[in-house]
Design a protein around this nucleic acid. Sequence first.
RNA 1: GCCCGGAUAGUUUAGUGGUAAAACAAACCCUUGGUAAGGGUUAGAGUGUGGGUCCGAUUCCCACUCCGGGCUCCA
Length: 576
Amino acid sequence: MDKLAELRHSCAHLLAAAVMDLYPKAKRTIGPPIDNGFYYDFEFPSPISTSDLTRIEEKMRELAKSWPVFVRHEVSLDDARLENKDNPYKLELIDEFSKKGEKITVYEAGGFRDLCRGGHVADPSRVLKHFKLLSVAGAYWRGDEKNKMLTRIYGTCFPTKEALDKYLWQQEEAKKRDHRKLGKELGLFLFSTSVGPGLPLFAPKGAVIRSEIEAYLKKIKEKYGLTFVWTPHIARSQLYIQSKHWQKYDAMMPALRIEDDEYTLKPMNCPHHFQIYLMSPHSYKELPIRYAENATVYRYEKSGEINGLFRVRSLTQDDSHWFVQSENLPEEIDKAIDLAQQIFKTFQLPNYRARISIRDKGNKDKYLGEDRVWDIAEKELVKAVEKRKIKYELGEGEAAFYGPKIDIMVEDSLGREWQLTTIQLDFNQPKNFDLAYTDKNGEKKQPAVLHVAILGSIERFMAILIEHFAGAFPLWLSPVQVKILPISEKHAGCAKEIALALKKNGIRHEVDEANKTVGYKIRESTLQKVPYMIIIGDKESQSASISVRSRDGKDLGVMEITAFISKLKENIETYQ
RNA sequence: GCCCGGAUAGUUUAGUGGUAAAACAAACCCUUGGUAAGGGUUAGAGUGUGGGUCCGAUUCCCACUCCGGGCUCCA
């Protein structure tokens, strides 16, 4: 256990002590350190809420002052059982450890004993200072929904006040950037009770961002040799029975009845794209065939799991299926990664790492497809990320039975990681759907399929972008690129002329004709994160020049309107 | 789905067992302004939905809907 984890684990003990002091009837369970702090799960005789945290935290501070050194005791099974006779959770753990033949240890500090593996700080009263309780939540005993729901208290602890403050600041900053909050403030998207949970509606400004992203994806994917297709949103349930999703996939929406047949909302596009592939026989000369679609699919996410645009029930995948001869897999995998890197660059996401899911080597039987092809594929996945110097880790045994895959995790401006890209090899579906091509010897062969989604879900990606940029999108994505601010009513005519010039050049703009001061208008445009403001007063209306200001408060000075427009167009056209 | 919390004008919030207050936004008026909030006036919700208790409910109780925090990170 590292130092920070020891500190946090010790703090979890402190929390448990405070809780036992205030709620003697509560039952303790476990309290491990986690990525950003620690938690402790309790069974309380009656529910507690966030407002109780203050009291508990005060008690912790009181106890911390004289918190003694942790003392380790090795105890026998019987003693351990006796000591915890009223706590079924601890008993369960004790029996488990004993069965595994592990030593049972108890740590004691300040009259407070807890079953514990160890890993504490040496001088608790000196270092247990910079902590904070954060939230209360429900959590199942051992994470299993069949078990009893416990009350989890989350907290965090750092070695210094500065580190704690920094963490809390980051949390605050993340809260400010919350895409749900910004989505409302910037008029991007909404949820309507009448439409239903998890079904986002995009308002004009959000729709602009969406369609810019989709248009960009279409352009760059076509450049990479993908062809776009379109498929409907419902299909006969039979299609998914053939693909085996019906049997295995648990996020299928319930079936619909249309006349005498059963249909369902599509949860994925693969079987549809396969139908297009099956439209005609294929020669090896045509391969690889790469079908792409920005396709909206529907998934049944449990009500409690829906979360803003991160987790929705209608989502649009930037999906594609590449039908490839096995021998061409290396170059196709490389191409897919190259495509992903280009796209990350465009969205100003410079840091990412890969996770490669491969077979469990000791258990090769449970995987479908030729051993040789798996070997090549796995090696190629590794080679491809190494060649591009992408940091990666191997997940042995994490591959699905039908193929290995690469996931790419991208870091945002607050240092949080998001999994975006999945490049999944599939040796299974070609079989289910009898996909074939004729090779140069006239023999019928089965192509490998690569499922490639770079951004995953466009809704989720938009949420990430909103938080990454804190709503201040790059020019090409901004719903309003330029705001024209006439100083007084007599400059309205001139403002309209400029608006017309922008319109002719395809630059999204608005004129703020409100009867307000220019200072007020600047403030409004800045809060709306409009990249550029043009201020029009007497000086400007008497010449062909405009005065430009950016949303970050810089006065860009006076320039010719034509020069300004061509500068913007140059920037925007990079992405079109 | 489950645990905890919440739902009051377009938005953010206040408040009360005797039918609701403010700020910002909006509309209008004054002002015609030079780089992050000029001033005034007016209108706007009957308090998520349904039920119950009560003379009386937005307030208390119940159910439902929706929203938020959380449910892998093992003594």
